[in-house]
Design a protein around this nucleic acid. Sequence first.
DNA 1: CTGTATCCTTAGGGATACTG
DNA 2: CAGTATCCCTAAGGATACAG
Lengths: 131, 131
Amino acid sequence: MAASRRSDCPISFALDAFGDRWTLLVIRDLLFKHKHRYSEFLVSEERMATNILADRLRKLEDAGMITRTKAARNAGGVTYELTEKGLDLAPLLVEMILWSAKHDAATAAEPEFVATALQDKQALLAAVTRL
Amino acid sequence: MAASRRSDCPISFALDAFGDRWTLLVIRDLLFKHKHRYSEFLVSEERMATNILADRLRKLEDAGMITRTKAARNAGGVTYELTEKGLDLAPLLVEMILWSAKHDAATAAEPEFVATALQDKQALLAAVTRL
DNA sequence: CTGTATCCTTAGGGATACTG
DNA sequence: CAGTATCCCTAAGGATACAG
């Protein structure tokens, strides 16, 4: 992705930034599933490969959509957090959920997830504007 | 795309449907640029290859997001139209535009495009609910 | 005009082993 | 725990020529 830039179109720009089948799953995990660690991202239902995950995390960091923080000595590990730029994808993700809820049987059968998204929408948008 | 289905997650479902670098450009052309013909899609700034375009048009039709209509004998050619399912992507596209407007210099420098999107948002959402 | 067909190249991705 | 490294393979994509 982010292959140089195909045009000045905003849709095209967005697709260059996250128009693939994996990137937004990482954002989803950060946004809705409150995951912050490499090992947590790995255990998703979609079974992302380790090299793919590492690649996407690096690209998201390069694009300024997440931050990577080496935790203090006593607390082990690395933590990923959304930046404002990443948080600003929340409305987009919510629209994806709503679209799927309307047009996909499996999603429609999961009213709790959709309800959560609808509740979160307010909270997330509030969080975004609060930044 | 649409490789069987990776999980029941709505985000994942949406990505399986249009999570690539080309599909949403076709939707954009239908939605914002009022293109309806194969030859029109081809002349975009992104220079889509003929085989890619044909592939995406077919997949979009298979997914029920667009219709393909052979025009009457006197009027030559084929016309593509968005279905309700395709039209329902309008809010998503608008969110993409707004995100790019905020985070991309080139987009921010195009206030007319963004303004159009904002105006269209109302009209498009009205159109969607009207269906 | 609306595509197919073909060729060929590259990028994406799965599996698995391994390292600081 | 947080990744790299490798291998190997398939799918995606560009170019171009051709067809109904």
